[in-house]
Amino acid sequence: MHELALIQELCALAQAAAEQQGATRITQLWLQVGDRCGVDADALRLAFAVVQEQHCWRQTHLNLELVPTQCRCHRCQQPYRPEDVVALCPHCGGLECDRLTGQELTLMAVEVA
């Protein structure tokens, strides 16, 4: 459900940026979606399809850029990609880490005409 709210937020941000440029049409959107941001990419696509039933978004293409999780181990400071929900460090077995990427939910760019 919250995917629709997020897509509406996406559209509001894009529209504001387009209006600032005096553009009348938004042809493409680029959205970065981290794999641990709590939002499902398919659900976002579905929610965007709902928005596209409105005339002004019918010609807009949504590009989703999926970002995999990257961690940095607190103990050995090495970066790694966790294989599981448990972010165990493959180098030293450490459990505590900083998440470098994977939480993104970011409107990167819009293409306007």
Binding site: A23, L105, L107, V110
Partner: peptide, 20 residues
Amino acid sequence: MCNGAVHRLELQQRLLSRND
């Protein structure tokens, strides 16, 4: 924008920035 030129605006805005 009647010439149909398209251009890309870089935004890098978090979707939840208003909620934030």
